[in-house]
């Protein structure tokens, strides 16, 4: 345990004691940064625990496409240390649970997950698209790796020509 990262190591130790094997691949690259993969089942409990312990700020949610799996990184911070919590889901049926009950600010971040990656978020109330515009081709989630830029441009250009 290096002196610089005592706080981070302590936090990881407490989380491991409470949630056990559901937390994997913990990396503490430097002071103020913690990376971990977690099982979806414990997501809400873990976030509740973090919020009670000062990690009140959900900076953002980053969606990602790893080829076989989709997922999201929740960047949670107490304004000093950022915990980057990765949750993965299958590409065939991508579903994640909404974290709105813990972090009420997550609405737009979770809408982004659906619009850009096609990850369904269970528990997110119906609403308008964000950030994709109205009329964007349905079922196309631009940040997925199989969506190529040329094809996307072609599709969008053809669409606007047709509409005119």
């Amino acid at each position: 345990m290096s002196e610089e990262t005592i706080k981070e190591e302590e936090l990881v130790k407490n989380l491991k004691e409470k949630f056990g094997d559901a937390i994997e691949n913990v990396i503490i690259p430097r002071k103020n940064r913690v990376w971990m993969d977690i099982n979806q089942n414990i997501a809400l409990d873990l976030m509740k625990y973090l919020k009670e312990h000062g990690y009140y700020h959900l900076s953002t949610i980053t969606g990602f496409d790893e080829g076989e799996k989709l997922g999201a990184i929740y960047h949670i911070t107490d304004h000093k240390t950022i915990l980057n919590i990765k949750i993965r889901t299958s590409k065939e049926n991508p579903v994640l649970k909404s974290v709105l009950s813990v972090y009420p600010v997550a609405t737009s971040y979770e809408r982004e997950l659906f619009d850009l990656f096609g990850i369904k978020v269970e528990g997110l109330p119906e609403g308008r698209n964000y950030p994709l515009p109205e009329g964007f081709p349905e079922g196309v989630h631009p940040l997925r790796k199989e969506v190529k830029l040329d094809e996307l441009n072609k599709m969008l250009n053809e669409k606007s020509v047709k509409e005119d």
């Binding site: 737009s108 950030p131 994709l132």
Partner: peptide, 14 residues
Amino acid sequence: NLGYNHRGIEKAAE
């Protein structure tokens, strides 16, 4: 309500 001017910068960056 937001999202009026999405430019796809994140996709372009990749």
